[in-house]
Structure formats: C-alpha cells, structure tokens
C-alpha cells in the first residue's frame, strides 16, 4: 500500500481543480473519469481534424490509460509544472501526443485553445512531444524505443534524490519491437526500479498491419515476467481495472512493474476501431462529423 499520502489533482464535476489525498478516500469516481475521457477524445478528434495530420488510432487507444494516470494516479501540480516532488511521465509512444496534449490542457498546463494549433508552424504543440516547448511534457519523444531507458534514468535519479517520486512510461506494442526496449527492460530489473511503472498500450495494430503479422510479440506477458518485471494485464479501457492495476504497483518492492493494457485502436469511434488505416490518418470531414456525433452521444 501507499506509504505516504500522495496528492492527486483532478478536475471535479464543476471543472475546478481539486486536491484529493488517499487517506480521505476521495478517489475520483469512475463515471467522472469516463466523462473526462469522453471529452479528451472529443478534443483529440477536433485537434486531428484541424491539424490534417497525426495519429488517430493510437491516441484514442491510449486515452483511458492517460486519464487514469493523470487524473487518478500521479502526483502533479499543473500550477507548477516543475514542482520537484511531482511524479514523472514519459510518453514513449510519442505519436500519441494529441492524447497527452488534450489531457495536459484539461489539467490546466496550458489553455485549451492551444490544442487546435497542433502541428502548425510556431505552435507549442509539436507533432511529437517536445519538452522544450510544452508545459507538462517531461521528455521529448517520437523516435520509438527510447522512452523506457529515459524513464529508467529518471527513476535512478529519483532514488538518488530521495523523495519518493515515481516514474510512469507509456509504451506502444509495436514499439517494443525495438531492441533498446529490452535493454532497458533488463536495466530496470537489474537496478530494482520499483519506483518505475510501464504501461503497454496493447492495441495489436501497427502501421503495416497486425502486430502478429508484422512481428510477433507473444507471449508478451511472459517476456516481461522473464525479464524480471512484476507483470499484470488489464482491460485498458476499464477504469476500475486500470486503477486497481496502478494501485497494485505501489505494493511491489524490488522490481519494476509492467501493466499490459489491452486496448482497441481507435477506441470510442466505431469507424476507427480496430482499423489499421487510422494509425496515421486523420478524419475526413464526414468521418469527423460522425466521430463527434458518436462521442457526443456516448
């Protein structure tokens, strides 16, 4: 269980930032998280449609994971993005940037209007996360396979610094085909980084097709287990499972945790769900209108 009382910031039903501590038992309710996720998905669709380029499928598959992390798990202070005690997040699958940006703006890291400058010249929202221009983005990513090593380094620094900062990394499933991921997997276990939690967005699709066809990953959970990680599998769209999984990692000592979150690429918009095509394709006008209709009705 949690040794201290982590502060959680989230937006309550009236849209106001609220501080909750674990011992108050005021954990955000699930319907509230679902509502945030619905709004984040609306923002993602809006951003991608306006940008005209970007990654639709992987942003929507990662949305619930990001909402669970940022609204119900991590210690954050959006008013002070560099607050030293904050937990750290690495979006190793950097192409899901729209989802991260939508979450950050909803937390108040920057105004929501900025979302709709995504990928434009001079925008603070680069095509892939850039820590030098976006408040709340800890690490610049985009070239796959590099985020877990960086997260390891942050977790080592946190250990040296004391203070109990935890580090979270979100990986894509296609991404773990990169060899560096497995170097980093060994490192995290070797250095017993129990302040590190990786979540794997297991949506089973990558640009060229199904992961099983492009490059087999299974048995994935056994691989992480064999590499020395505390490994669990959850439904990446079910908040009770995501939150329980994240909570479980607090009790793990002496090794890093891997949460394999089973997801649906394009989740939330029927025409995008499980469609390889929408990895890196944005909605057309008709698709955009249908997506908004579906998400408004959800």
């Amino acid at each position: 269980m949690v040794a201290n009382n982590p502060i959680i910031y989230y937006i309550n039903k009236t849209g106001v930032h609220t501080i909750v501590t674990k011992n108050c038992q005021e954990i955000p309710d699930i319907s509230h998280l679902r509502e945030i996720a619905r709004q984040v998905r609306l923002d993602i669709i809006e951003m991608l449609f306006k940008a005209g380029s970007g990654h639709t499928g992987g942003s929507l598959s990662a949305t619930d994971i990001l909402v669970a992390l940022f609204f119900a798990q991590m210690r954050l202070n959006p008013q002070d993005p560099c607050w030293p005690q904050r937990d750290r997040f690495v979006l190793s699958k950097g192409h899901a940037a729209p989802a991260l940006y939508a979450v950050l703006s909803r937390l108040g890291y920057f105004p929501r209007e900025e979302l709709f400058t995504l990928r434009q010249f001079g925008s603070s929202l680069q095509g892939h996360p850039d820590s030098s221009c976006t408040p709340g983005v800890e690490v610049s990513t985009g070239s796959l396979g590099q985020g877990l090593s960086i997260a390891n380094g942050m977790a080592l620094a946190s250990r040296l610094n004391g203070g109990g900062t935890r580090v979270y990394a979100l990986l894509g499933d296609g991404e773990v085909q990169e060899g560096q991921i497995w170097e980093a997997a060994m490192t995290a276990a070797h250095y017993r980084l129990d302040n590190l939690v990786a979540v794997l967005d297991r949506n089973r699709l990558q640009i060229d097709g199904r992961t099983a066809e492009v490059m087999s990953l299974e048995p994935l959970a056994q691989k992480w287990e064999a590499f020395g990680w505390h490994t669990l599998e959850v439904d990446g769209h079910a908040f009770p499972e995501l939150l329980a999984g994240l909570q479980e990692t607090h009790g793990v000592k002496g090794r890093p945790s891997m949460i394999i979150a089973h997801t649906v690429k394009g989740k939330g918009v029927s025409i995008f769900e499980n469609q390889v095509k929408y990895h890196g394709v944005t909605p057309s006008k008709e698709e955009y209108e249908q997506a908004l209709k579906e998400l408004h009705a959800a």
Binding site: R88, E138, V139, Q146, L148, S149, I150, A151, N152, G153, M154, A155, L156, A157, S158, L160, N161, G179, Q180, E183, A184, M186, T187, H190, Y191
Partner: peptide, 28 residues
C-alpha cells in the same frame, strides 16, 4: 558505487539512461 551505473553491453540504453538522469537533475 551508488552513483555509478554499468549498463552492460548496451550503449543505446546507456545514453538513454543518461538522458533520464540529466532530467532528474544529475550530471551524467
């Protein structure tokens, strides 16, 4: 020994880990 990290034969991971340590305020 607490401030030295051998990454094994894994240069890519070493440079990435160094980046993370720098982000954590260390001078790697």
């Amino acid at each position: 020994p607490q401030r030295f990290f051998n990454l094994g034969v894994a240069e890519q991971d070493m440079l990435g880990t160094a980046a993370g340590l720098a982000l954590g305020g260390k001078i790697p």
